[in-house]
Design a protein around this nucleic acid. Sequence first.
DNA 1: CCTACCGATCGGTAGG
DNA 2: CCTACCGATCGGTAGG
Lengths: 221, 221
Amino acid sequence: MPQVSDTSQSPRKGAITRQAILDAAVRLASVEGLETISIGRLAEVLQMSKSGVFAHFGSKQDLQLAALDAALHRFVSEAMQPALHQAAGLPRLWGLCDQYLSYLERRVFPGGCFLLATWAEFDSRPGPLRDAAAAAMHTWNDAIERAVISAQEVGHLDTMGDPAQLAFELNALLQAANSAFLLSNDRREFDRARVGIRDRLTRLATAQAPHRPAASSPGDT
Amino acid sequence: MPQVSDTSQSPRKGAITRQAILDAAVRLASVEGLETISIGRLAEVLQMSKSGVFAHFGSKQDLQLAALDAALHRFVSEAMQPALHQAAGLPRLWGLCDQYLSYLERRVFPGGCFLLATWAEFDSRPGPLRDAAAAAMHTWNDAIERAVISAQEVGHLDTMGDPAQLAFELNALLQAANSAFLLSNDRREFDRARVGIRDRLTRLATAQAPHRPAASSPGDT
DNA sequence: CCTACCGATCGGTAGG
DNA sequence: CCTACCGATCGGTAGG
């Protein structure tokens, strides 16, 4: 009766398999969309039976929700977490934008930003998936807006500017980088986003702002 | 043998049916995506047999391409055409942006901007549909960029600015209005886009620019 | 986690 | 534009 076993197998094999399924689901969904993935194709990729895959989730929708959740966690750690540890104010705000662009450049997901893709897929289809995609979008939007407000509070940004307006414009440049890069495959799109962001931030920066957001200069390529 | 008939029926019944199919396809696809529409569901909506729908197109892909083409024509006439008739320079450039926002506000398509939705759906799936969606995106991007260059040529905009950079930023604000409005259902998102666009244009406007792009002021709601 | 199976729906064809 | 039909695949279930 192996209760601890030999640690080589068994610890929580189910959880490992479940994670493997979610990894494959996220990879597939990034390219084809969360709705288009099918349990049968996942089973094929994973060399499992259909019902073997199915057994880990109560329904296709639960699988989709779990995959979105897994992608969101990956998004947070790849596109947000490092920047959130920076000093409040312009460093953190610029860090968030730059970290997001780096997440796009590193192609963390093969199909571009997973959150934007999923939001575009479900933005007009009411239901749990739309709700979850909206919540994921809010996770990001709130982080940006909080960083803007905090930059005003520490005195780096002029309080005359409307935080919602600045957050909207920063977000606009970031999501444009995603779709434009997928369209042109031209890395200068990232430079354009950085130029636009730097312009907005320097224009609103106060005298107390730390040597302004210099960042990696895009050069004149 | 009715050769001219009584004009009530018959002229080109096939073409009429085909158009009805495309209208339904565009409406469905705007909400659910071009890939998700099925010939069977279209037949149901149109009270036709599946093969009756199918007969007008050689394949599902051809139906999708035809629907995208129909949506593009509608996009051009609703979001571009009126603005393109305005005077070259800032009037036309501002007109294009404002017309696009109006197209979103009027909810020409129930699921937001059809071009952006379709591009997001196929941006990572190589094939004829991705190519057609990219071409549709270029139709719009080129119009904006040409309007920017033309505004420089007539002396309304400072030639120091990079046209590609300005076009990128205007486009960013426009597509952000689309996704943000679908997310929040808050019309202030359109105001934010207009404020950002006006800011960009006034900042680059020369002395010869016609009384600057005033536009409908968003008020302080 | 498997085999075996269900009804429904898919895109597409035959033949008229 | 129809009826009738095809093989393939879908999400999901039974039973182990």
